[in-house]
């Protein structure tokens, strides 16, 4: 599904900062992987490279066997539309649009008719439990509700991959737990591959595997077993 081969990413000219260094990673369809590590370890860079917002300095990133580094910007954007949903720590909803409009936005950007897009968005809002908040704008909603809207937006295309950057980072623990439960539920329904960057060990327990990054390199990759989860 997703394969990273010897991926490196460096920044700067004079003083080179190696954000990722010779990373190899493979994610199977439906697998949930948590990426953990201290600040500056390269977690966000990894996410940006997989979703095609950034390009690797060396190496190949394949999604369904297509090397996204070889694509131009528009092709990467189209690929993102079809195959990758994204959720962010700060939700990143468009403040002027209603919940319904925010959720239907990716469809409409892809040329889906308004009526059709809104029907699908309404169904998605129902799945995330916010059917009653369709006409509300982000500033009229709580943090948890905003993240649910962001998840609905990310999954509106039913993408095979969901990239989540600290999805519970801006939420209280109870709301965070609800969001993680929602992601579990949606994963069961859509069999989405989830790559989640998190600092939260609790959140990582909702995944099948945890990889740990330090100084741009994967230092460990371990499966989350039932025992681990219980131990926590």
């Amino acid at each position: 599904m997703i394969e990273l081969q010897n991926v490196s990413r460096s920044f700067g000219d004079a003083k080179l900062v190696q954000a990722l260094n010779q990373v190899n990673l493979r994610l199977a369809q439906g697998e949930r992987v948590a990426v953990m590590g201290p600040s500056g370890s390269g977690k966000s860079t990894l996410l940006n490279l997989i979703c095609g917002l950034d390009e690797p300095s060396t190496g190949a990133i394949k999604i369904d066997n297509v090397d996204i580094a070889s694509l131009d910007d528009d092709s990467r954007t189209r690929l993102r539309r079809q195959k990758i949903g994204m959720i962010f720590q700060t939700f990143n909803l468009l403040p002027t649009l209603t919940a319904l409009e925010n959720v239907s936005l990716p469809l409409r950007l892809n040329g889906v008719a308004k009526k059709d897009a809104e029907q699908r968005a309404t169904a998605m809002l129902q799945k995330v439990g916010l059917a009653g908040r369709a006409a509300h704008r982000p500033d009229q909603m709580s943090g948890g509700e905003r993240q649910r809207i962001a998840i609905a937006r990310a999954l509106i295309f039913a993408p095979p991959v969901l990239l989540a950057d600290e999805p519970t980072g801006n939420l209280d623990s109870k709301t965070g737990e609800e969001i993680l439960a929602l992601l579990d539920e949606l994963h069961r329904e859509f069999n989405t591959t989830i790559l989640m960057v998190t600092h939260n060990e609790e959140a990582a327990l909702h995944c099948d595997r945890v990889i740990r990054l330090r100084d741009g390199q994967i230092i460990s990759s371990s499966a989350v077993t039932a025992r681990t989860a219980e131990g926590q």
């Binding site: 979703c51 917002l53 910007d73 528009d74 954007t77 189209r78 993102r80 539309r81 994204m86 990143n92 909803l93 468009l94 403040p95 936005l105 990716p106 950007l109 892809n110 937006r153 990310a154």
Partner: peptide, 16 residues
């Protein structure tokens, strides 16, 4: 800037 970035991140083309 952020709004435009989000738009691009969720699949908005440069032309859009």
């Amino acid at each position: 800037k952020r709004e435009l970035g989000v738009l691009r991140a969720i699949g908005g083309l440069r032309s859009q």
